[in-house]
Amino acid sequence: MKNDIKTTNMERIDKASLLDVDTSASIKFDDKIYHIKRHVDTTILIYDENDTVLYEPVLPILREINISNNLGIDLKHSSGHIKNTRVLGKDIINRINENI
């Protein structure tokens, strides 16, 4: 069952990565350059410096990027609910692009 879930997630990532990119930003993290991309279906994916999609959970990476780069983005909505990957990813992309 766990392998089925992993395969399904990989397939979903593969499909999303083929879609057009709506917005994106690049940032240095752990001495590497990463590209955060928001695709037209609002999926947030992270790519390495070679533009290869990472098959890792995105939300924890976004949280680490936010902290390590002192972006100051709140991880919660004003209502107190925790932001999901799509919302946090969009906020991070916008903040990075504001600072360029």
Rank of each mutant, 00 (worst) to 15 (best):
I13A: 04
T52N: 15
N3D: 14
R86I: 01
K28I: 05
G80D: 05
L45M: 01
D74K: 14
N50H: 10
D48L: 01
N9F: 12
G80R: 06
D22M: 11
N70I: 08
K15Q: 12
L45K: 00
V21P: 11
D48Q: 02
K28W: 06
N69A: 03
D4T: 12
A25C: 04
D91T: 07
N69E: 04
R38S: 02
N84L: 06
P57Y: 06
D30E: 13
L62T: 03
V87N: 11
H77L: 09
V21Y: 00
I61V: 09
G89C: 02
I82F: 11
D4K: 14
P57Q: 03
D14Q: 10
S26A: 05
R12Y: 09
F29D: 06
A25L: 00
S79M: 10
I5D: 08
N69R: 03
R12N: 12
I44L: 02
V58I: 07
I100H: 13
K83Q: 10
I92D: 01
V21A: 05
T42E: 13
D51S: 12
D30L: 06
K37P: 02
T43D: 13
Y55K: 10
V58A: 03
H35E: 06
N66C: 00
S24N: 14
I65D: 03
S79C: 09
L75D: 05
L59G: 01
T42D: 15
K6L: 15
H39Q: 04
K37C: 02
N94E: 14
A25K: 02
N84E: 08
V87P: 12
D20E: 07
L45H: 05
T43A: 05
N84R: 06
S78C: 11
L45Q: 01
E56I: 13
H77F: 07
Y47N: 08
D48R: 04
T7Y: 12
